[in-house]
């Protein structure tokens, strides 16, 4: 077994036994799919439950995940990296045959895999709740909207990867959680200023809000900026762990 697969299996051992990832999974799956129906009686136009068809239902749910997911997914990536410093276990991760950059990469890969599984669980939960609410027939465009929802959720998850670097550099939880809050507020301000699509953290929600409409080239570029940002910060986080001194 090579160093990366060892690192990945050890990260999974910690992840699968810890409470926070379980709570985050529950929160991400349950809040959009179950809490919204409790508010359905109000039938506000901004609620997923006000949707009269599957397309609006998935797009409104995607809008919810684009904002709430930054906190849900963000907490997990911050915990994965910040805990080693907060718990003091980072000193034990030096002087090993498994290098620290492989450990950091394993954390990011595990996070992306978990985000994928959580997104699928949320999609299934939404379909179940949607079927109960009965928003009409499930046609080809509904599948597109479902695909858009999955993409928005995964993009939102990947946009939290930069907070791994904040946790590494600050060596704590507080700064990255503050950074998540700051990004959400800043994105909201930029969206109000009409720049939503060009703010990486607002772009997935903006795309969901447009219902898949708009210029495909512009939307692709706007979403791709977020992907590049995530990959760039994933690389910086791995590099920071490689060069880490404590």
């Amino acid at each position: 077994m090579n160093a990366f697969s060892t690192a990945l299996s050890m990260e999974w051992m910690k992840f699968s036994n810890a409470l926070l990832p379980r709570l985050a999974t529950l929160g991400i799956v349950l809040v959009p799919s179950l809490v919204s129906p409790l508010m359905a009686s109000s039938r506000d136009t901004g609620s997923a439950l006000s949707a009269t068809n599957w397309i609006d239902y998935f797009d409104l749910s995607a809008g919810t995940v684009a904002t709430g997911g930054l906190f849900g997914f963000g907490l997990v990536i911050v915990w994965l990296f910040g805990r080693e410093f907060a718990d003091g276990t980072i000193t034990g991760l030096f002087g090993l045959p498994v290098p620290r950059d492989k450990l950091a990469l394993a954390k990011i890969v595990l996070f992306v895999l978990w985000a994928g599984v959580t997104t699928l669980m949320l999609a299934i939960a939404l379909i179940c709740v949607g079927a109960f609410l009965g928003p009409g027939p499930f046609g080809g465009e509904a599948w597109s909207a479902l695909g858009r929802f999955v993409a928005v959720s995964m993009l939102t998850a990947s946009l939290t990867i930069p907070f791994a670097l904040v946790a590494t550099l600050s060596r704590d939880y507080l700064a990255p959680i503050g950074a998540i809050l700051g990004v959400v507020i800043m994105s909201s301000v930029l969206a109000d200023a009409g720049l939503g699509g060009w703010s990486p953290y607002a772009a997935p929600g903006y795309w969901a809000q447009s219902g898949g409409g708009g210029d495909p080239v512009t939307i692709t570029i706007q979403l791709f900026i977020g992907v590049i940002l995530s990959v760039f910060f994933a690389g910086l986080s791995v590099r920071a762990w490689k060069r880490l001194e404590i």
């Binding site: 036994n17 810890a18 276990t89 000193t91 034990g92 030096f94 002087g95 045959p97």
Partner: peptide
Amino acid sequence: WARVGHLIEYPLAYAE
């Protein structure tokens, strides 16, 4: 490195 053992400040022990 596989034949090095160390404990500096905090044990490598995860609470969960």
